[in-house]
Design a protein around this nucleic acid. Structure first.
Lengths: 191, 191
DNA sequence: GTTTACATGTAATCCGTTACATGATTGA
DNA sequence: TCAATCATGTAACGGATTACATGTAAAC
């Protein structure tokens, strides 16, 4: 279930670049985030975090320096310029229906990192607009699927699809509300 | 991001047992399901499906027989008794807050398989009730998190948490509605 | 007659999990 | 002094992805 989201970086790797872009972090810091915040989807075990950080440093996407706090070594990572560019490109990309279909929570993870890459208003607006539009398309797809399932023997798969529809509707209304709160007009796709 | 959900079976493996329990299926059949239905989260590549089916057969959870449709061999899998028991135990387990926190869509996948294991009314009610209750707890957790984030520099992580809250609310109202539709009273936890 | 759908597999690589391992610092 | 927290790593194993590989049958 390792999802290649862009080029050849895993979701975990983007998360690590994003977190160190918010503020430079050690492996332990990252571990705390994965344990205590809504990023629990990622394993907080050192066996996944430390190798991934080293990998990203070897690939030139992260850089580290040893901080001596007392006697303990503490290796703090931050994105390189290349790493930051890769992150930014990933974060500000428009949301597609495919991404929603196949990667579930990836769009909202990207959204959470918009601040870490100093996205401008246009990018944020494009993100939210594309998210809302893609969700609309996806909701239509799910409605068709649910209709086709009307006569099936077991009601549970169809009810599960209705569950998906509810979720998509909630995500869409969040997108609309957030756009309004940020002062983006709901329609008007361009002059 | 391989999630061990129970004992030592992955989500993919439970999905394979569940699908073959709905009706016996070949690797190709499974591939079609993963390509065309809301189970797209699973890779439809033969490199993941065929080895997993063989693994499950080797472990005694699936059994197969070769169907000769014309000249082509077509190997059709179905759960063994043990496999069915493992599936049933996984499917009807009560939803916990931990599962919601850490495994996201696992509960609704389990729900979709309730028919495949011939779950009785009591089990279905227990499932929905525990799901609703756990979502309630989880929503409270998210609300606290969002409050703590009020003064942060970047608004995006907090908005992402609000997005999560919307989703959880949608899931909860689905659970309530589904319980009502199935004739379960909303409260009354026991005599 | 050629493309599309049916159908199954293998091999290389890499990643993630689990478990093991170690040691310093802080607070009770 | 003892537990909890801070802090970083390695090794074994298994599983997932990607790409490669092959062939039949049906439809157009």
């Amino acid at each position: 279930m390792i999802r290649m989201t862009n080029g050849n970086l895993t979701l975990l790797e983007f998360a690590l670049i994003g977190l160190t872009a918010q503020s430079p972090k050690s492996g332990y810091d990252v571990q705390q985030v994965f344990e205590t915040t809504e990023m629990r989807q990622f394993s907080s075990s050192p066996g996944s975090i430390y190798p991934a950080l080293k990998r990203l440093e070897r690939r030139g996407l992260l850089a580290s320096e040893a901080e001596a706090s007392g006697d303990r070594t503490r290796r703090v990572y931050r994105p390189t310029e290349t790493g930051h560019e890769r992150l930014a490109a990933w974060v500000v990309a428009s949301v597609t229906v495919e991404e929603i279909r196949e990667e579930g929570r990836a769009p909202i993870l990207r959204f959470a990192f918009l601040g870490a890459v100093d996205a401008d208003r246009r990018s944020v607006e494009r993100f939210l607009r594309s998210y809302r539009e893609s969700l609309e398309v996806y909701e239509g797809e799910l409605r068709s699927v649910a209709e086709e399932m009307a006569g099936h023997t077991s009601p549970y798969p169809r009810l599960a699809v209705l569950h998906g529809i509810e979720q998509v509707r909630a995500q869409r209304s969040w997108a609309v509300r957030t756009m309004r709160q940020m002062g983006f007009t709901k329609d008007e796709d361009g002059p």
